[in-house]
Design a protein around this nucleic acid. Structure first.
Length: 289
DNA sequence: AAACAAGCCAACCGCCGAAGG
DNA sequence: ACCTTCGGCGGTTGGCTTGTT
């Protein structure tokens, strides 16, 4: 189709970039399909969109990833799987394409070298039977969290309604994105409470989530979620950790949640593989100082 | 210096879901 | 209810760069 219309493919020239920037800056990009003809570009709308998103958006960050970014990507991938757009939304100024490339080229290989399965985020075993189902598992786990968050949102009414309910709509975010990630992870943990909220629902509810305000901050590297004001976060999480420890065996949701923080769970300790070698530490101490 | 391999990344492709007619 | 269009996503690839023999 594109060839039939004489549309250009391949790398963008500086001239084309200029045209695209000039047009989008002046008119916005409400309709990518019609943009090429309006901007006098021999490209398809998709190509223009991709070029804009990945390279033209102002303030976009290019170049090497920091070790902190690497670690955050690993944590988020453990939780979300190959949801690159969602991961990108949680990493300021990085694009999904760049994160995806970085994962495939660098992080994935590094994990493999370290004997970690990049898909499951667990030490590699000889049994590969689980691998086929892992991607599906990630999706269902995330979907479970999303539904859980939505249900909670409804349950909690108007006081806490703006959660990360959509993986792609950043406009819904009112809290910081990092806080939403944290919130969802808490939702995973609490979803495993035995107390049922509704007899007709497959979801289960505990009394309440940790107070989700801007007191939660995502800081530097592992164990960086911290409580910085007087609320029940630390207490709740500390309790959850004890509670979690009891539930861990065979509990996939918790494994994912814990993987997202500690990368791999082994008994009562977490093993970190953030590139500085492997070591053990206590989860509660590591996460919340 | 040349040939080949591996690494890397920008861009394309195909699919899916939402929106609108 | 069905069809079409469009935006968005994740997987994949083509080609350039860098490293190795």
């Amino acid at each position: 189709m594109s060839r039939a219309l004489g549309l250009k493919k391949g790398p963008w020239t500086p001239k084309e970039d200029k045209k695209l920037i000039a047009y989008v800056t002046q008119h916005g990009h409400r309709n990518w399909h019609s943009l090429p003809s309006r901007a006098v570009l021999r490209r398809c709308g998709k190509s223009c969109r991709l070029r804009w998103i990945n390279y033209m958006i102002p303030d976009i960050k290019r170049g090497n990833f920091s070790s902190e970014e690497d670690h955050n990507i690993i944590q988020l991938h453990a939780l979300l799987g190959n949801k690159w757009s969602t991961i990108a939304a949680l990493l300021p100024r990085r694009t999904d394409n760049e994160i995806k490339n970085h994962w495939n080229i660098n992080i994935k290989k590094r994990l493999i070298r370290m004997g970690i399965d990049p898909t499951t985020h667990k030490p590699k075993s000889n049994n590969n039977n689980d691998n086929d189902n892992t991607a599906i598992k990630h999706v269902s786990q995330w979907e479970h969290v999303r539904l859980e968050a939505e249900a909670r949102s409804t349950m909690l009414g108007k006081t806490q309604t703006k959660l990360l309910l959509s993986s792609s709509s950043s406009s819904m975010l009112s809290l910081t994105k990092h806080n939403n990630a944290m919130y969802n992870i808490c939702a995973i943990m609490l979803a495993n409470n035995d107390d049922s909220f509704s007899s007709t629902s497959t979801l289960s509810f505990s009394n309440e989530l940790p107070c989700l305000t801007n007191e939660l901050k995502f800081g530097e590297g592992l164990g960086s979620y911290e409580s910085v004001s007087n609320n029940n976060i630390m207490e709740t999480i500390a309790q959850d950790h004890v509670y979690v420890s009891k539930l861990l065996q065979g509990d996939d949701y918790l494994m994912v949640a814990l993987d997202a923080f500690g990368d791999s769970f082994n008994g009562d300790t977490f093993m970190d593989f953030n590139g500085n070698g492997m070591y053990n530490f206590d989860a509660s101490l590591a996460f919340f100082e």
